[in-house]
Amino acid sequence: MNIFIVIILGVLMLAAAGTALYMKSLSAAVIAAGAVSLLASVLYLLLAAPDVAMTEAAIGSALTTVVFLYALSRMRGTKKEDPRD
């Protein structure tokens, strides 16, 4: 039973990792990378490591995604100005 869940999570993680690298849209790629971390945190919970699961869920999927999106918005903002400016 547990093994099936682990296999499904593992396949989803690999698929999300591939998506993150080959997605055209950068923000979608960042979200996919966050999904890899979120699935990893579920795996940590199944591996009886709840401390690591909490850290990964809070840092890996939440804060890292936010930092990536902030960086993306800065890399977009300097080149093309908002047309309404």
Binding site: A17, A20, L21, L26, A29, V30, A33, V36, S37, A40, L43, Y44, L47, A48, A49, V52, E56, G60, T64, F68, A71, L72, M75
Partner: peptide, 26 residues
């Protein structure tokens, strides 16, 4: 080729190594 994509690749590597280390302790 995009810097952001390269950094995403790096963070995926990070997750992979963490998974290996935790898995070895199970």
């Amino acid at each position: 080729r995009n810097l952001i994509k390269m950094i995403i690749g790096f963070s995926i590597m990070d997750t992979g190594t963490h998974l290996i280390i935790v898995g070895l302790g199970y």
